[in-house]
Amino acid sequence: MRRILALMLATMVLSAGVVHAGSVGIGAFAGMSIPVLQDDTDSGALYGVRVPVKLVPLVTVEPYYAASNLGDKTTTVAGLSYTRQGFDETAFGANAMLTMGGPVTFYPLAGIGQTKLKRDGFDESFTSYNVGLGLGISPMPKVSIHIRGELQMVSLDGGTSRKFGNATIGASYALFSMP
């Protein structure tokens, strides 16, 4: 899967040479990260920055940096309650999106990145993959609002993953664009 997504992203970046670059912007987002099938960590706030680069019409590649403070998880063991610290998560990578253009767009996205999970007794980095859907609304030129739902899969050593459902809302501003 890592090879497929890396190849996909690399080809998209290389394909930019075929036509002129579209635009480069900057954006910020915030939302919630919700662990999926994880007994040992809870939901937490998610926030970060994005740099949308429109390479060709319809295709945007978006490097990102995200951070999340996942919630603690309390479990009762032998009649006593114990709390495990939630992960502090940081991630960076790039997503590719099929943006249709227009004032309202609905687009799929997929990407690859590096995610670091840290808490007492644990501090490791893993390759992660993102897939999801987004809704883009452009109320005025150069500005767009994005509402997204993503599945983030953090690939673990055993061939499994920690999965997070991420729901975010963000805003982007087009710094410059080329015809």
């Binding site: 899967m1 999926v36 099938l37 994880q38 007994d39 040992d40 479990t75 899969m153 690939s155 673990l156 061939g159 499994t160 993953s161 920690r162 999965k163």
Partner: peptide, 9 residues
């Protein structure tokens, strides 16, 4: 497997 997995106590 990566999709159908979880962490259980």
């Amino acid at each position: 497997c990566m999709l159908v997995s979880g962490q259980f106590i």
